[in-house]
């Protein structure tokens, strides 16, 4: 079959593209270039899965091409033809048995890793002794990310910084349609949903800037929901905090409301303070079901008027 040359050519194209890309050494390879403890574990797990899957896919692919070649009607060699052969207990036990076995192994590995890499599990045990975790609250807005540091008392937009080798506890919520918080080089993502605080624990093992993204579509300018995550030394982090404390403006209630309006923010703004309990208020604003607090009622009535206004387009 003349297909082989083509197939090689096709397979080579993406590799060529990767080679081109890798030549610029600054390219961020995301998941393939883990820089955090969680991402490393996930990378290992991905490799295990690939190896296990290859045990079955490579023989299958070879058989497919070999059988197609050998038993082609135009084959002049006198190959065997058994039109009525359609059952073999031996072959059928193998073809059920091997996949079952592989899935059992993979299943066990998956269960172990599911508990090991549960995003809400704290990473304190993995850190050096005496290192205190940093807590960062993340709120996804239309279409920007707000980071608030409850202990340091500062806030940032579309930029988040934390010390290396220190566990970071992200608490996540949303004051807009749900999104997903993802820093590929540090570890997997988790949804940001309104009315609840999700948890994600990550830890960077190297100083560096990492691309962060919103990964769940949230409306018009979703494409602008990128952010930068930067891991620095503890000293750099401390002086950065002190600097913001000194020179940045405060985020007021009104300032937050303006920030929460749908729109795109091009600069990485920083704030020396933010209203007390802002994050908890955002979470409880949408509360759990049948919440009769004043805030929730005010919110729902304003939504009703807007929906009535919107019906007659």
């Amino acid at each position: 079959m003349k297909s082989r040359g083509w197939r090689r050519f096709v397979a080579a194209l993406p590799l060529l593209a990767i080679a081109l890309l890798m030549s610029g050494c600054s390219t961020d390879m995301g998941v393939l270039e883990p820089k955090g403890i969680v991402a490393k574990e996930q990378f290992d797990l991905i490799m295990i899965t690939i190896v296990l899957s290859i045990i079955i896919t490579v023989p299958v692919l070879s058989m497919a091409f070999y059988f197609a070649w050998k038993y082609r009607a135009s084959n002049k060699d006198n190959v065997e033809y058994k039109p009525n052969w359609s059952h073999s207990t031996k072959i059928e036990s193998w073809m059920w048995g091997v996949p079952i076995l592989i899935i059992v192994v993979l299943g066990v590995i998956t269960v172990i890793y599911s508990f090991k890499l549960e995003p809400s599990k704290a990473l304190a045990a993995e850190a050096k002794d005496g290192v205190k975790p940093v807590t960062i609250e993340v709120t996804s807005l239309d279409w920007k990310w707000l980071f608030t540091y409850p202990e340091e008392g500062i806030a940032t937009v579309n930029y988040v910084r934390f010390p290396e080798d220190v566990p970071v506890e992200f608490k996540l919520t949303s004051d807009a349609p749900m999104n997903s918080f993802w820093i590929p080089q540090l570890g997997g993502q988790i949804y940001t949903m309104s009315g609840m605080a999700m948890e994600l624990n990550l830890m960077a093992s190297e100083v560096g800037q990492y691309q962060g993204r919103g990964a769940n579509f949230s409306g018009e300018h979703f494409g602008k929901m990128e952010f930068t995550a930067e891991a620095t030394s503890q000293a750099d982090f401390d002086s950065w905090v002190a600097d913001i404390k000194q020179s940045s403006p405060a985020l007021t209630e009104q300032g937050y409301d303006e920030l929460a309006e749908p729109g795109v923010v091009e600069t990485n703004d920083t704030y020396s303070s933010f209203p007390d309990g802002l994050f908890d208020r955002i979470v409880s604003k949408y509360g759990s079901s049948h919440n009769h607090s004043a805030a929730a009622e005010g919110e729902s009535s304003s939504e009703e008027t807007s929906s009535e206004g919107g019906t007659n387009k």
Partner: peptide, 15 residues
Amino acid sequence: VMLSVAPADFQFHNS
């Protein structure tokens, strides 16, 4: 199958 491995899917999801 790679995607079905839940703890790894955190890195594939929506990508």
